[in-house]
Design a protein around this nucleic acid. Structure first.
Lengths: 202, 202
DNA sequence: TGTACATCAGTGAACGCGCGTTCACTGATGTAC
DNA sequence: TGTACATCAGTGAACGCGCGTTCACTGATGTAC
């Protein structure tokens, strides 16, 4: 198992293409293995069919690749949430669509999602050096959509309610991946239950 | 940095003591680093002040140590939940205490908690070989306490409601650790909100 | 149209590292006589 | 009470591995003249 594919050399000026291939391969590796540490330069290189040092033309070090993968994942999620919201006019329908899209994304790329929202180590590390880093702010951005949608639906205590909904969505997304053997209710059922009970300020 | 402490040789028949020290050191390492892969035989040995091969008197391989740490964590959590529940007679107070205890444990040992309930890789791996493994069943055990407590409080749809509560607790526990920069509500507030809205079948 | 050359995309060999694990061992200690 | 010995707890050196990263390089390709 030396190389999965033989890589075709890019043309003059198109070297940047390899950058995308590297990020895509890293994301695929992360999704397949579910292990951030399994995403090594050498495995990425092997998957693409290039030599490992070629990566250094595009990234200063391994960590930069991981960060690029995270940035891509967050951008995807954000785009999906945005699209889901725009598809409806009614605030309640928007909220439903938002939750649905959130869980669908997490189910489609479970490990990318888990690493993106659960990488305690790097968050802990980077939080010491530079608080409010990319991850935190983009996580906050995804969250702010939910806050806004929930605020539109229910007049009272929007922040706490939104936190409760987000927290439950994240918990469902995480646990269905971590403990698949459990008899989980359907996505739609849990969303209906959550939204139904949460949005009413009785 | 060769050895943190010089380890005193155990007396004849008391060799089993080292086993506990190994598990404790591994748990401490996991909690400090937040990274399962940082728990290496050599680091454990260094922390205790023994030679790395000495570990093989007590564990067949590295994986067995990690499993022992997980088993200990689950046992602790279960004992804590049990104690919280026994401290009250009223079902509603029991439920509150249970949720409180759950979140307190997760806050005290955040990384142990996260790895125990979020180790997607090993769960994925072992689920292939032996479905319904130790982790799953013990996770289910912790969960079944919640189901029982919630069932006692509310007559309708206990399973889905219990899932919603557990899922929200897990999400809160995970995200407060992963995204500490966020303006999280207090533990008590989120519990009151959850229990209050969830247990009423309107 | 031909040719020299700068540049760009990518390579192969090598480095030092920490790791899990194996092996043959050492030396203290309790026990049998 | 003394001593030989089996056993138990733990060791030091070594192995092969995959890793991130560095280095001097190769060879195709577009461009200037």
């Amino acid at each position: 198992v030396t190389a999965e594919v033989q890589h075709r050399r890019n043309k003059r000026g198109e070297g940047a293409r390899l950058r995308e291939e590297i990020v895509a391969a890293a994301a695929a590796l992360l999704e397949q293995t579910g292990d951030e540490d399994a995403v090594t330069l050498r495995r990425i290189a092997r998957q693409i069919g290039i030599a490992a040092p070629s990566i250094y033309r595009h990234f200063p070090d391994r960590d930069a690749i991981i960060k690029a993968v995270m940035a891509t994942a967050f951008a995807e999620l954000d785009a999906i949430l945005d699209a889901a919201q725009r598809a409806h006019d009614d605030p309640m329908q928007q909220l439903h669509a938002l939750c649905q899209a959130y869980l669908t994304y997490a189910a489609d790329k479970p490990h990318c999602y888990l690493v993106a929202f659960g990488r305690h180590r790097t968050t802990a590390r980077s939080a010491a050096n530079d608080p409010g880093s990319m991850e935190d702010s983009t996580a906050a951005q995804a969250f702010n959509r939910l806050v806004a949608a929930i605020t539109r639906c229910s007049p009272g205590l929007p922040h706490q309610t939104a936190v409760a909904v987000w927290v439950a969505l994240h918990g469902y997304a995480s646990l269905t991946t971590s403990v698949p053997a459990f008899p989980w209710p359907e996505r739609r059922q849990i969303i209906e239950l959550l939204v139904d009970r949460m949005h009413r300020v009785t």
